[in-house]
Computed example of a mutant assay.
Amino acid sequence: MRQRGFTLVELVVAIAVLGLIMFAVLPSVGTWLDNTRVRNVAASLQNGLQLARGEAVRRNQSVSFWLVSLNDPSTLSNDCALSNTSASWVVSVNSPVGHCADQPSTVSSPMIVTGRAVGDAGGRVSVKAVQTDGTTAGTAVTFNGFGRIDATTNTPIAKIDVTGTGATTNYRALRIAITAAGQVQMCDPDPSVAAGDPRKCP
């Protein structure tokens, strides 16, 4: 019985077609991966804010969510500083500056609850947190025992915009909006989102 395999011409044509398909698909895959990173970072920030609010209600005391920058974005360390452009965060009663790597405690300042380093995704994601005026940098928001914003402690973050870092890529940006009542909502800041769409930012 005669066996037949691929000829060299057929193999070259198959590789060329596969190469063209990969060339066409790779930019879309790259954008999809970047948008997944944006989504993951936004979800992490939303979770941190909700955790801070829940902990404030549980303890019946003010608890804050802090955005912190790290020398190594994959590890919470004591070289941390407050930053409105970082996706790393710490939930604590007092400012965690210089103490981000401390163990959780209810008695030792800064009384850390938990924290999260942004990790490798931070290099491909842009974060900007601002106060209610829409321009002044915001680095923290404090929730009181009722779960509302405690404006007497500091001027709080009102929104955090999260997008990609590429100048020419069309990212699906996300926003974390925080109301005075303490509600934390992830929404789509794109003005083309139709009114009434639950994804639309208020």
Rank of each mutant, 00 (worst) to 15 (best):
G54H: 07
A181S: 12
R148W: 01
T135S: 14
L11R: 00
P191D: 05
D120R: 00
S83D: 15
N78M: 11
F23Y: 12
A81Y: 01
P27H: 00
N154T: 13
L18D: 07
P104L: 07
D102A: 11
F143T: 02
H99I: 12
S69R: 07
C201M: 02
V118S: 04
P189V: 11
S86L: 09
P96M: 06
T163Y: 09
F23A: 15
G134V: 04
V184F: 03
T165H: 00
V125F: 05
G122V: 02
D79K: 00
A16W: 06
A56W: 01
N35M: 02
V125C: 07
A173D: 13
G19Y: 05
G196A: 05
A24G: 11
A140K: 07
S62Q: 14
L70G: 06
T7A: 04
L51H: 12
A43K: 05
A158M: 12
V41F: 04
P202M: 06
P104A: 11
D188Q: 05
S92Q: 07
V68I: 14
R58V: 14
L51V: 15
L82M: 12
G196F: 01
D161W: 00
V12Y: 00
S95N: 15
G119W: 01
T75P: 01
Q3K: 05
L49C: 14
D197N: 08
Q185R: 10
A167Y: 04
S109A: 15
G115F: 01
P202S: 12
R58C: 13
R59S: 15
D197A: 04
G122F: 01
I112E: 06
T169C: 09
A42V: 10
S86A: 14
L8E: 08
G48S: 09
A195F: 01
S109H: 09
Q3D: 14
R37S: 06
G115L: 02
C201P: 01
R124A: 14
Y171T: 10
T165W: 00
D79F: 00
A140D: 14
C100F: 06
S95P: 11
L51A: 14
N84I: 06
L11S: 08
T155E: 09
Q131Y: 06
D34C: 02
P73D: 12
L20H: 10
A180G: 07
S28C: 11
V25T: 14
Q61F: 12
A24T: 10
S109P: 13
